[in-house]
Design a protein around this nucleic acid. Sequence first.
DNA 1: CTTGAACCTCTAGTCACTAGAGATCGTATA
DNA 2: TATACGATCTCTAGTGACTAGAGGTTCAAG
Lengths: 138, 138
Amino acid sequence: MFSIGELSKRTKVKVPTIRYYEEMGLLAEAERTAGNQRRYDKDGLERLSFIRHARDLGFSIEAILSLIELQDHPDRSCEAANSIATSQLVSVRAKIKQLKALEKELVRISKGCDGSGVSEDCYVLASLSDHGLCDREH
Amino acid sequence: MFSIGELSKRTKVKVPTIRYYEEMGLLAEAERTAGNQRRYDKDGLERLSFIRHARDLGFSIEAILSLIELQDHPDRSCEAANSIATSQLVSVRAKIKQLKALEKELVRISKGCDGSGVSEDCYVLASLSDHGLCDREH
DNA sequence: CTTGAACCTCTAGTCACTAGAGATCGTATA
DNA sequence: TATACGATCTCTAGTGACTAGAGGTTCAAG
């Protein structure tokens, strides 16, 4: 049995975040000492590791709640879990695509500016003002 | 002179968002009719287009405020604006890198699941539970 | 038994909006 | 000129996933 601070150290999840997860129903309510402090065991550690890993992968709290439910009712959960993972993959790919477009435009904008500080008109500001200079729609 | 709804249509920025930008100091306080409704002109339209474009590129409200200040004090603003754009580019690239790592892992997780629904243990859930299965740190 | 770090709960703040209530305004039509 | 009704106004509160701080209590070492 260890304290919330100990759990925090082991999982790299901040103490207030652990309490927040409990409040959101991601973590079961922890056992308490006589003095009302939370105590955790191996199970709690594993579940929090699972949550942290899923959060790192960009799953929302809501999606994680679904995954946890699936864990508790393992019949045919594989398909359901896979569909959650797949939809996460789809949104990650969409984000990458969008960011790459942004990268391209930012490169273009930066290139126009030679950094000499001599030019009267700033190309960065002009680019942002005049959408007509863009390659793409957004 | 046109209404906030008209401005919204032309810029594709929602009406409450325009009011929010005004409150945040991104847009100057608009002129008002006798009946207290906002009225805009070409200047307002251009500034809002600038803001929308910058937001689309992922600049924060704060960064946009800096850019607007630079516009109002154009002496040597090019370097400053360029440095804001460059730091934006750096963070966009960092996000892309991170998302690509996530994509890789999600692909790996999904591949493990054959979707047949036959397997007792779900590879998706196992992958999320056991960090040791990951290729990388996160 | 004392000290002080760690813990507790509660409220409020973050960012960039979005939603809704309830009241007023502007304009097209009768 | 009267009426209808969509657009506008202000204000408050909600979103997601935390983070920060106040003010008080508990635990464990010395």
